[in-house]
C-alpha cells in the first residue's frame, strides 16, 4: 500500500495529465449534444462582450466595401420595384388590394436586426455568434439570413448573445429547391471551401441545368420560401446512384459576414410542435 502511494506520488503529474485530457475530451463530446451548455462557447456573456468590443473597432475598416455593396443592392432593388409596380398596375387597378397584399407580407414575418461578433469558416463545424439573444426575442431554430442569402439557423441562445449553426457546419441540413423547376433537395456541407455547399437527395427524375438558382423551399418552419441560396455549378451522382448531388456556389460570402437578420415566422412553434408529434408517433 505504501509502495503504491509512493508510486502515485512520484507520477502525480501523469495523473494530472490524464485528468486534464479527460476533462478536455468531455468538453469536446458534450458540446456535440444539442442540450449542451452554452457556457463554454463565445455566446457566453463575458467572451461575447470581448468580441463585441473588437467588432466595434474592426467594423470601420469594412465600411467602404459594405457601403458599395449596399448601393449596388439598393439600385438593383429600386429597378426591381419600378418594374414590378409597372407590372402590377397592368394587372390590377385596385389599389386597396395592393395595400392589403403589402401589409400581409409584413405581418407574416418578424425580422430582428443583429451584428455578427464572431465567425469562422475553417473548422469542420463552424458557428457564428450574433449580438442578440433571448431578451431580444431570439429563440433556437429561428432562421438567419444575410444581405445576399441564407446564413444559418440559431442553435443556442444566452440572454444577450446567440450561437448560429452556420451553413458551413457538418450538422447543418436545410430544405431547399431549384427555383425554376421546384425540385427539392437538402443543403449540406462536407468541409472544404467556404464558397460551396452540396444540394443532396435531389431526385433522379428532376430537371435542372448548370446555373440554375437554388432557393429555400419554405417547407420547414425555419425559413420562408424563396430566399436565395446559390447557383448550381457542378452535377454528380450520389454514392448509391439513386439521386443527384449538386455543388452549389453560395451567394453568401461567409468569410465576410457583418449584418444579419433573424427571421421568426408566425406559427413557427405550432408547425415545429406538430412535426415533432408526428415524428414521435412514427417512432412508436
Amino acid at each position: 500500500m505504501r509502495n503504491l502511494l509512493n508510486l502515485l506520488l512520484k507520477y502525480d503529474y501523469c495523473l494530472l495529465f490524464l485528468l486534464l485530457e479527460i476533462a478536455g475530451f468531455l468538453l469536446l463530446f458534450r458540446f456535440n449534444s444539442y442540450q449542451g451548455s452554452v457556457f463554454f462557447t463565445s455566446a457566453n456573456r463575458v467572451f461575447g462582450a470581448v468580441y463585441d468590443v473588437a467588432k466595434e473597432t474592426t467594423a470601420y475598416f469594412g465600411l467602404r466595401t459594405a457601403n458599395k455593396r449596399l448601393v449596388d443592392q439598393n439600385t438593383e432593388l429600386f429597378l426591381q420595384i419600378e418594374r414590378l409596380t409597372e407590372e402590377l398596375k397592368k394587372y390590377t387597378a385596385d389599389t386597396v388590394l395592393i395595400g392589403e397584399m403589402r401589409s400581409n407580407v409584413l405581418r407574416s414575418y418578424t425580422l430582428y436586426d443583429a451584428d455578427v461578433v464572431n465567425n469562422s469558416v475553417i473548422h469542420k463545424d463552424n458557428y457564428i455568434t450574433i449580438n442578440k439573444g433571448e431578451t431580444d426575442g431570439i429563440r433556437p431554430e429561428m432562421g438567419v439570413i444575410g444581405g445576399n442569402g441564407i446564413v444559418g439557423i440559431v442553435y443556442k441562445t444566452s440572454s444577450h448573445y446567440a450561437l448560429v449553426l452556420s451553413v458551413l457546419n457538418s450538422k447543418s441540413s436545410i430544405s431547399c429547391k431549384i427555383k425554376r423547376t421546384e425540385y427539392l433537395g437538402l443543403l449540406k456541407w462536407d468541409g472544404g471551401s467556404s464558397h460551396y455547399a452540396l444540394l443532396t437527395d435531389v431526385p433522379r427524375h428532376s430537371e435542372f441545368l448548370l446555373g440554375d438558382t437554388v432557393v429555400t423551399s419554405g417547407y420547414s418552419a425555419v425559413f420562408p420560401g424563396n430566399i436565395p441560396v446559390g447557383i448550381v455549378e457542378e452535377i454528380s451522382d450520389s454514392e448509391d446512384a439513386l439521386s443527384y448531388i449538386l455543388k452549389v456556389k453560395l451567394f453568401t460570402d461567409f468569410a465576410r459576414l457583418n449584418d444579419v437578420r433573424v427571421i421568426s415566422a408566425p406559427g413557427r412553434e405550432e408547425q415545429a410542435e406538430l412535426e415533432r408529434n408526428v415524428a414521435e408517433i412514427e417512432e412508436e
Partner: peptide, 22 residues
Amino acid sequence: FFLGLAVDVFSNTPGVNACACT
C-alpha cells in the same frame, strides 16, 4: 490546459485546444 481552454471558448471548439495544449 487553461490556455487551451481560453482559446477554445473564444473559437467555439471546446476541448480541442485544451487537449492539444495539455
